[in-house]
Write a protein that binds this DNA or RNA. Structure first.
Length: 284
DNA sequence: CATACGTCCTGCCAGC
DNA sequence: TGCTGGCAGGACGTAT
């Protein structure tokens, strides 16, 4: 499931090779990923030049000439694969399975959007529409301007469990189920703790933990549980570094207490019942 | 308004 | 051994 580190990895890999490239043609094999008729989509993108590839939350943002913005959300199983190779006959390689959209580049190469479960979305927006969409998304956890005070403010007023709050893309953008559990473990905060009850010290610990986990995961090129691949088709290397996610029943890496799994808002949260206490501290 | 929960979609695998 | 029901969850829509 591509979260911030996975999307960041893909964006870093695509930025150089795609910048300045021409989109020669677009083929849509799965129209349900779009919010417009595929013919319109293809016509509007053909002939555009890629100006930049960036990330906002879990979204890949391609700025194109026109100007227009191509927003790619990978959902659960989406992949952006850059194929620059040719086979021995000189024609492009065979289309990968579950291919949804392919962007033929000039000169040569293809960017494939592949998605088994098709939870992903590809939106073509104007600069103004994207500005509004981006404004609805929450703070970037790795933005150095994000302070512990601001972090506390983001959680303030929420009676929801911390785990659910971290998944809310309108508060912080980019965290999904894997890094929510990992961050809470590092910050020693219980996933069911009421989000709005965090004091400044705890908010700072949480922000530090979120940043540390995301940065380490980026360095490892993300976490492959099953489906995630980088833009070069490789698996991410952060899996072995996961301390609680998917480790139900295993001993806590800190205190050896068995890791527990609980379900919050239909999502699994993994935590150590000994290291991560439910109760807010009495000194707040 | 905020929160909870169902829905989409398919591959995988535990359990019968 | 083969089949199947349940599970996985990002984002959105609907219900409370």
């Amino acid at each position: 499931m591509p979260e911030l580190p996975e999307v960041e990895t893909i964006v870093r890999q695509l930025a150089e090779p795609l910048s300045g490239r021409l989109i020669a043609a677009v083929e849509v094999h799965r129209p349900d990923l779009l919010r417009e008729p595929p013919e319109l989509f293809c016509r509007a993108l053909a002939g555009c030049r890629v100006q930049s590839v960036t990330r906002r939350g879990k979204n890949v943002v391609l700025r194109l000439s026109g100007p227009q913005v191509l927003l790619v959300n990978l959902g659960m199983t989406g992949r952006l694969l850059l194929d620059e190779t040719l086979d021995e006959t000189g024609s492009p390689r065979e289309a990968p399975p579950y291919l949804c959209v392919s962007f033929s580049l000039a000169p040569g190469g293809t960017l494939h959007y592949v998605d088994v479960r098709r939870f992903g979305r590809i939106l073509r927006l104007s600069e103004g529409e994207w500005k509004i969409e981006s404004g609805r998304l929450g703070a970037e956890p790795l933005d150095p301007r994000l302070s512990a005070e601001r972090m506390k403010e983001l959680l303030r007023g929420s009676r929801a469990p911390l785990h659910s709050c971290l998944l809310d893309q309108h508060r912080l953008a980019g965290i999904g189920n894997i890094y929510a559990s990992e961050s809470l473990f590092r910050a020693r905060l219980h996933p069911r703790r009421e989000a709005g009850s965090l004091n400044l010290r705890e908010s700072e610990a949480l922000l530090d933990a979120v940043r540390a986990v995301l940065q380490e995961a980026i360095r490892a090129r993300g976490t492959t549980i099953r489906d995630y691949r980088t833009a070069t088709g490789d698996e991410g290397g952060f899996g072995p570094a996961l301390q609680v996610y998917g480790h139900q029943g295993d001993p806590c890496p800190r205190c050896k207490t068995p890791i527990q799994r609980l379900v919050l808002a239909n999502r699994s949260a993994f935590y150590c019942p000994s290291c991560q206490r439910q109760e807010p501290p009495s000194d707040s």
